[in-house]
Amino acid sequence: MIEILGVSKTYGARGAGGPAALTNLSLTVPDGEFLALIGPSGCGKTTTLGLINRLVDPDAGEVRLEGRDIAGQDAALLRRSIGYVFQEAGLFPHLTVAENIAMTPRLMGWPKAETQARVTELLALVRLDAFAQRMPAQLSGGQRQRVALARALAARPHILLLDEPFGALDPLTRDEVAQDVRDIHRRLKLTTVMVTHDMTEALLLADRIAVMRDGALVQAGTPRELVAHPADGFVSAMLETPRRRAVALANALHA
């Protein structure tokens, strides 16, 4: 279970100054849940994601994993136990696909044979068996994102963090990789938090959606709850595009 309890965060000049990135944010993600964090640019959703593996440390409040405050834990060790997929994949360009995937086990000092076996297993999981020795530059966008996913999962984490993982992909690839992610989430019984600014994607993939604005939580609920009882005009407006698309799609498909 991930618990974010009354967290505030300000960037820029220490103490006073810069605009608040997060103001008194509280959010809980139960084990096994797929949560989507959604909101306009600058609403604090990526900052919130970073709180969970200490890429961001809160100014006030605390973050707990499995009931333990993470502030006292070693940041590097903590991050090795949590999968993280970056917006633009963030693969290491000087390492092969296999070496990229093996990075976290390597940092954790796994035996070579075990790492090797894990890499093979993950390449199969993301359907890239033949690509072990390729360099990242030789891959398509979708392939890169799947390697990033495999790298995030290498050390068998229970938590997977995704920062707009499909942002740079074309619609077809996007759908394909999204289905892979959803599938893997279920099969590995992960607790997944995904940042997105695409409400349609959130509605299709997530168990629960947390809508953010100006560093604060506006509403959190299942897709059904959000659609049935939007908290305010802002949430309704965000749901407008998927709704219109759904109607148009239904019309097109049943015509």
Partner: peptide
């Protein structure tokens, strides 16, 4: 910067 963030994200210390 994305690559440096990725190194941090997979659990590298600044030295690593």
């Amino acid at each position: 910067p994305a690559i440096r963030r990725a190194a941090q994200g997979v659990g590298m210390t600044p030295r690593q």
